[in-house]
Amino acid sequence: MSLTLINVLFAVVAAIGFAALNAAYLVWCERKGAGFFQRRPGPMENGPWGLLQPPVDGIKLMTKQLVIPGGVDKALFMVAPVLAMFPAIMSFVTIPFSENIVAQNMNIGVLMIFAFASMGSMAILFAGWGSRNKYALMSSVRGVSQAIAYEVPMLITVITIVMITGSMDLRAIALDQSGGFWQWNILALTKSPLMPVSFLIFFVCTLAETNRAPFDLGEAESELVAGFHTEYSSMGFGLFFMGEYANIVIGSCLTTLLFLGGWGCPFGLFPGVWWFLLKIYLLIFTFIWIRWTFPRTTIYGLLNLSWKILIPFSLFNLLLTAGLLKVF
């Protein structure tokens, strides 16, 4: 066995571990956060401050029966949850946590992450189609149109960043912003004065891509019961759940790397993995904060936002950045 293969295996195991641990404890954070936003303490019963809640939940999910309803498309039904989790884990492989902590750096890291991210909508489509449930089907159709609508502005903003940096390597993009918060892409006003707007667009798109409130139309519980995972039980549901949280982590990792200087310190001191973790968890907190503040949009509201506001703005920013790069 070659050394690279061992390296890759080790990386994959580490990524799975990180993703699973994060997913499990993000559920705890989400519930705690929800509780605090609603003036209640959240889970308190299992362990101190409810810290043992995630393992308990995990055991519950794993020991439950996996019900496969009659008439489902078995192959799609079984593949879908795996497909929801798999791209998330694969994306972790190429994310640099600091200058040296990266499982497998690639010079087209950005491209790879987006390639995997678009597989997520496949999982939704498979789950919705496969489970032979009208709610699930409607949800999956929504999910796909949402994914298409939001990948466009998201990629346009990413192209802007790639243009500024001149690289698709996530590590290079992060290193390009080192030195202090004035160097971060979110404040790169000299390169394009619309960069903060660009950040907002990217952030909104991340919310939509990860199916988070207020864009959680796929699983709009008051309309579509539970959306595409209505028919899933046990770990089938668990994988969807973990996949969602893993996607949130990846979304915040990307936002941090592309806009917030990666592992760089705001004041240029002691760059390192702790800054990176701090930034992603702050972003995740914002995700939770937004979820527990706003009502859900509708499908047309969501598409209107994407096509009428986000895409024009991101396109304009792209042109402006290109023009400024050409001039200066």
Partner: peptide, 13 residues
């Protein structure tokens, strides 16, 4: 009603 619209927190308030 707000919960029907997907916002859970106002219910608690």
């Amino acid at each position: 009603f707000i919960m029907d619209l997907g916002g859970f927190t106002p219910l608690m308030y």
